[in-house]
Amino acid sequence: MARQTGILYFTISLILVTVALFFGFECRLTLVTHLPYGYFIPIACGLLFLFNMGCLLRTAWSDPGIIPRSTPEEAAYLERCLQDQQARDENTREYRPPPRTLDITINGTPMKLKYCFTCKIFRPPRASHCSMCDNCVENFDHHCPWVGNCVGRRNYRYFFLFVTSLTLLCLFIFSFSVTHIILLSGLQGGFLEALKISPGRYPFMLICFFSIWSVIG
């Protein structure tokens, strides 16, 4: 994980509380007892929840593709090359930093590699240095504070599965929460009476509603 875990534990708590409220109110009151094959609802929700948490933890606990820093021998060799270059330059007496780019050819295609002054390496294409993790990450996408880690080459698939499964989980819980309100309104003879019986739906219905749009986006 990154040195700064961000709000990963808040993310885990938010998902846990939302699913727990769904099991404690919606499934217990009407969904399992009044719908045909309603017992499949908590089973499907539980499996989706376990898959989602697995993808979240795998994203947070995986190496995103950190590129090793240069060894002391490599850094010393580069320093000697720079000093030799500086000695040959008669027009300056100041210290010159390493060149910021390096032109190479890969499979006949010219590439320009950028130099990282922190890791003392020339980064491969699509790599970038994360200021939060203080590492160069291969195929760097972004640093996600919600999972407390960078998203890069080695954990991008798990991050994508996490976002996808979280979207399905939010849609699943929100849809059956609306179904629960409709069923309970018919049983209690009114919408307001149904809301009085099961007040626990308010927080997680709002969480799911707003999470659907942010996660899909």
Rank of each mutant, 00 (worst) to 15 (best):
M1P: 06
M1S: 06
G6H: 05
L8G: 00
L14M: 12
I15Q: 03
V19C: 02
A20K: 07
A20Q: 07
F22D: 00
G24V: 07
G24L: 01
F25K: 04
L29T: 15
T30C: 08
L31E: 02
T33K: 12
Y37C: 14
G38F: 00
F40R: 11
I43A: 07
C45I: 04
G46K: 04
F49Y: 10
F49C: 05
C55K: 06
L56M: 15
A60V: 01
A60N: 09
S62W: 08
P64T: 09
G65W: 01
G65N: 09
G65Q: 06
I67N: 10
T71S: 10
P72S: 05
E73P: 08
A75T: 10
Y77A: 12
C81W: 11
Q86K: 10
Q86Y: 06
D89N: 13
E90L: 13
E90C: 14
N91P: 06
Y95A: 12
Y95P: 10
R96W: 03
P99F: 13
R100D: 08
L102M: 13
D103V: 15
D103M: 14
I104K: 01
T105M: 13
N107Q: 15
N107V: 12
T109G: 07
P110M: 11
P110I: 12
Y115M: 01
Y115W: 10
C116I: 00
C116Q: 00
C119F: 02
F122S: 00
F122W: 09
R123G: 02
R123K: 12
A127H: 03
S128A: 14
H129C: 03
C130W: 02
C130F: 06
D134A: 07
C136V: 10
V137N: 04
V137S: 01
F140P: 01
C144H: 02
W146V: 05
V147P: 00
C150M: 03
R153K: 15
R154I: 06
N155C: 04
N155E: 08
N155G: 03
Y156N: 11
R157P: 01
F160V: 12
T167H: 09
L169T: 01
C170L: 14
L171T: 05
I173S: 03
I173R: 02
F174Q: 07
F174I: 04
T179A: 13
T179D: 10
I182S: 13
G189R: 10
G189N: 04
G189C: 06
G189I: 00
G190I: 00
E193L: 09
L195C: 13
I197Y: 14
I197H: 12
P199G: 01
G200Y: 06
R201H: 14
M205T: 11
L206S: 13
I212G: 04
